[in-house]
């Protein structure tokens, strides 16, 4: 097994889930309606829970324990895509990011259900219901708001145009791509991106939103290599503020 490649894949996935879960949890108590506040919080919890399970697999491969990995690293050691670290903004951006990211999440875990790396295949199958709900939630919201009022349509359209270059950053290739493909561990970022474009396009086509030509967008890369926006380090400092008071004590 290609342990380096697997670790690389696990790190980027775990960091993605943790950071977006953290961001989405910021909405708790501030949501646009009570029911949605609850639903959005559940999905944030799912994501943080998934990141924990991914870090656990890493732990079994010899990496530090999940709390240490999550709470003690600096931004340049994180491998999440930049999309997930961006501030929440208003609900338009948060929803659009949820849609773009969670579509990729669903497809990635679907692909990994058949991975030759058993722990990841098992996890992917186990959380199938969670990712299905996330994607169902995102699609219904985008279809609703994307065809409702002038305001909602123009807000979503702007958010979409802002988020898309970052969203393409989800699929930043790693140096292990070919090895992972050859060993049947993961079909690769390119394959994922192509499926993702298909699904995104189908949903957007049911709304009054429009997608630019994907070829005209320059993806924002760097996140997978530890290059981040100015937003990640403060997020991590906030997240670990209490933990770092004494990282060795039991909280």
């Amino acid at each position: 097994m290609n342990t380096e490649g697997i670790k690389d894949l696990l790190y980027k996935m775990a960091d993605d889930q943790l950071i977006i879960g953290h961001r989405n949890s910021e909405w708790t108590g501030f949501g646009p309606l009570l029911e949605e506040d609850i639903a959005f919080s559940s999905m944030a919890q799912d994501k943080v829970g998934q990141s924990y399970q991914l870090y656990n697999i890493l732990n079994e491969l010899g990496e530090a324990d999940p709390d240490t990995i999550a709470f003690m690293r600096n931004a340049d050691q994180f491998h999440n895509c930049q999309l997930v670290e961006l501030p929440n903004g208003e609900y338009d951006f948060s929803l659009v990011r949820h849609f773009l990211f969670d579509t990729a999440e669903l497809l990635r875990f679907q692909m990994l259900s058949n991975s030759s790396f058993e722990p990841l295949a098992n996890l992917s199958r186990k959380i199938k219901g969670e990712t299905k709900y996330h994607s169902m939630h995102a699609n219904i919201w985008i279809k609703q708001l994307g065809s409702a009022t002038e305001e909602s349509i123009s807000r979503l359209q702007s958010a979409l145009e802002y988020a898309l270059p970052f969203a393409l950053g989800i699929f930043e290739p790693s140096s292990h791509e070919q090895d992972l493909i050859n060993e049947g561990i993961f079909e690769g970022e390119d394959a994922l991106k192509n499926k993702w474009i298909e699904v995104i396009t189908a949903v957007i086509n049911e709304t009054r939103l429009s997608l630019p030509d994907f070829k005209s967008i320059t993806p924002v890369y760097g996140g997978r290599m530890g290059k981040h926006t100015e937003h990640l380090q403060p997020l991590l400092e906030e997240m670990s503020e209490v933990f770092k008071v004494d990282p060795t004590s039991d909280w």
Partner: peptide, 20 residues
């Protein structure tokens, strides 16, 4: 109950409010 604009959203909301 849940407040929702339509039945599919009602389903989304009820799932988390009543079965989480």
């Amino acid at each position: 109950i849940v407040h929702a604009p339509n039945e599919e959203m009602a389903f989304l909301f009820a799932k988390e409010q009543y079965t989480r």
